[in-house]
């Protein structure tokens, strides 16, 4: 210890830390991703061996072409975008409006509905009654019905996150806005919504991931090829006519389903992580 200064010791420590993290990241992230990619380039027979080796016979073009053509990729992509974007926006708006109201009210009725909203996060969905209700209002099997159910089942997360956050906010700003004569909607839009940005950002990341990858509701609530989202198109296509798993196509599908989210993540990565790590999840 006498020969190394604290500075050098901490540098050594830092280096060791990163070496360790690097070693940890290999099996944790690199190997799964590599296996996914490399096997999506192989023929069906070769991919069934599930090795990490490079393909001896490249079938990348064939596999990915199949994902695009037989896999109905662009239909699925279009539907996923058309569903995910409005759902996330609407959930954020409705959720933050409700959260503001819940955080600032002591009324019994609202306390009860807040509690119900919080419960909706942790209880499993009741699919059959949901389908029954959608059938009654004529929306079962349609994109609208699916979006309605997604919105309703995800809004609780935003309410739960945002209520805790809003309670930590001082009421001074909104009171000032009220005194300036701003209506409630104006106050919400110009004061509350900007203040909530960190927590809504956290919520938005969780929402996008949840909505984009939703499989269970999509399976039951969407009918027909024309309405299918990416998880649906690719799941049904990746299974061979015999019902067996064709790994090369499964992996090519997984790659193509994940890519839109992945691109968004790479572009927004800084924002996502800083948003999450500074955001109000613990609020």
């Amino acid at each position: 210890m006498s020969t190394t200064s604290p500075m050098q010791a901490s540098r050594l420590q830092q280096t060791l830390k990163y070496i360790f993290l690097g070693i940890f990241a290999v099996p944790w992230v690199a190997v799964p991703l590599w296996m996914l990619l490399v096997n999506s380039f192989k023929t069906e027979g070769e991919s069934s061996v599930l090795s990490l080796a490079l393909p001896t016979e490249w079938a990348a073009v064939e596999n990915y072409t199949k994902v695009f053509t037989e896999g109905n990729y662009f239909v699925g992509l279009g539907n996923s975008l058309l569903i995910a974007i409005p759902v996330v926006v609407v959930v954020l708006i409705l959720g933050s409006m409700a959260a503001w109201a819940y955080a600032r009210s002591n009324a019994m009725g609202l306390r009860v509905t807040f509690f119900i909203s919080a419960m909706s996060i942790m209880l499993p969905p009741a699919i059959i009654p949901t389908i029954f209700i959608l059938t009654k209002i004529g929306l079962q099997g349609t994109t609208w019905g699916y979006m309605l159910v997604l919105t309703a089942t995800k809004v609780g997360v935003i309410i739960f996150l945002a209520v805790g956050f809003v309670r930590t906010l001082p009421t001074d700003y909104e009171e000032a806005a009220q005194l300036d004569g701003a209506g409630r909607l104006r106050t919400y839009w110009h004061v509350i919504l900007p203040l909530m940005r960190p927590v809504l950002f956290t919520g938005a990341v969780m929402l996008v991931i949840g909505v984009w990858n939703d499989f269970l509701f999509a399976l039951f609530l969407l009918a027909g090829k024309a309405n299918a989202t990416l998880p649906l198109t690719l799941y049904s296509f990746a299974l061979a006519p015999t019902g067996a798993v064709r790994w090369n196509l499964v992996f090519a599908s997984v790659v193509m389903t994940s890519i839109p989210l992945f691109i968004a993540y790479v572009v927004l990565q800084r924002r996502v992580l800083s948003g999450l790590t500074e955001g109000g999840t613990t609020g």
Binding site: G95, T113, I116, V149, G156, R184
Partner: peptide, 27 residues
């Protein structure tokens, strides 16, 4: 505004009741 809370929460309440609470209770 005594009831603005209610109006702000209403859309979310309707959705949660219709597509979470009612199916959950039925189940």
């Amino acid at each position: 505004h005594p009831t603005w809370h209610f109006w702000f929460a209403l859309p979310a309440i309707i959705l949660v009741l219709a597509f979470f609470l009612v199916p959950f209770l039925a189940n």
